[in-house]
């Protein structure tokens, strides 16, 4: 068998049927095929370029407000109110950071924000993980009603529950404490946490738990030793969302905190007064306040990506 014949995919079969030699494509046809392949690759390249441009545009769209905030925090007072506004500072200064961080109560507000966000995140996870597990594994009608009902608190405008919550916390002696604010924040993050965790638990094959049970694990043991490690990425995602919901929350903090538990979003808002707006200090404090969240997100980046794709590999 000639090389030409051997290179044909159906070479053996063809040889049995006919002895006609394989005729390679004419140079013109080869050129056409080459042109087609090149055209295809060029098409792919242009699609990729277009996608990159769109991605870059989306990134600029989402990232620009933050970048603008960041640049503004380095501007001189007169630069911050320039008409028309400028993007980059004409003169870079750290004066706004000194003003913002030197303001009384800023450090305390950071501690309060961290305390509140941590308590709220832990509360959300402690409540959401077993709730979501029960709903997804037992699939009872009441579970379905519960998961829908959990969303109800998200359907009510926060201000409508903020004032009653503040009154309730005050009547049980928890006024102006981080725990009161954490509980309030948990009402925001819990529904989302339950829904998120439910989708992550749904993605875990029941076979895994059954195998653990066969190996002698109890149901709780299987949850703790097998299922939770599998959904750890999902837990990280949920924790981030719960943390962010509390870290950046403003309205409940405004209504429920005073001297002992005021969080940083309220302090940031205090730079806008009836008598003027201190853009520089406001943006400087906002920039500093975003650092812990950025660091946390970077630290948990791999877990978050793993969590995001968990639902995509449903077994």
């Amino acid at each position: 068998m000639s090389i030409a014949e051997r290179t044909r995919p159906d070479a053996g079969k063809a040889a049995a049927v006919t002895t006609a030699p394989f005729v390679p494509p004419a140079p013109a046809a080869r050129r056409r095929r080459g042109v087609n392949r090149e055209g295809l690759e060029a098409g792919k390249r242009s699609t990729r370029t277009l996608l990159w441009i769109l991605l870059a545009a989306a990134m600029v769209l989402y990232g620009f407000p933050f970048l603008y905030l960041l640049f503004t925090s380095f501007k001189t007072p007169i630069d911050t109110i320039a008409v028309p506004p400028t993007i980059l500072p004409k003169e870079w200064t750290l004066e706004n950071y000194a003003n913002a961080l030197g303001r009384s109560g800023v450090l305390a507000s950071f501690i309060n924000s961290a305390q509140t966000a941590v308590i709220s995140t832990v509360l959300s996870l402690v409540l959401a993980v077993p709730a979501a597990y029960g709903i997804t594994r037992y699939k009872t009608p009441s579970g379905r009603v519960f998961i829908m009902a959990a969303l109800v608190t998200r359907m009510v405008p926060p201000v409508a529950i903020g004032i009653p919550l503040a009154t309730m916390m005050s009547s049980v002696g928890l006024a102006d404490t981080p725990i009161a604010l954490s509980i309030a924040h948990t009402t925001i993050s819990l529904p989302l946490s339950i829904w998120l965790m439910s989708s992550f638990f749904e993605a875990v094959p029941r076979d895994l738990e059954e195998a653990a049970t066969v190996d002698g694990c109890s149901r709780l043991g299987a949850l703790w030793r097998v299922v939770i490690p599998v959904v750890s990425g999902g837990i990280a995602v949920t924790a981030i969302f719960a943390f962010l919901a509390s870290w950046n929350e403003f309205l409940f903090a405004l209504l429920m905190t005073a001297i002992r538990s005021q969080t940083t979003p309220v302090v940031i808002a205090n730079f806008q007064t009836q008598f003027g707006l201190d853009w520089g200090s406001m943006t400087a404090l906002a920039a500093v306040y975003s650092i812990p969240v950025i660091l946390l997100t970077l630290l948990l980046q791999r877990k978050i990506v793993a969590g995001m794709t968990l639902g995509a590999v449903k077994g």
Binding site: A108, T177, I259
Partner: peptide
């Protein structure tokens, strides 16, 4: 949480 970080009772 009993005292928070802001100061005395409000």
């Amino acid at each position: 949480t009993g005292c928070g970080a802001g100061g005395p009772s409000s």
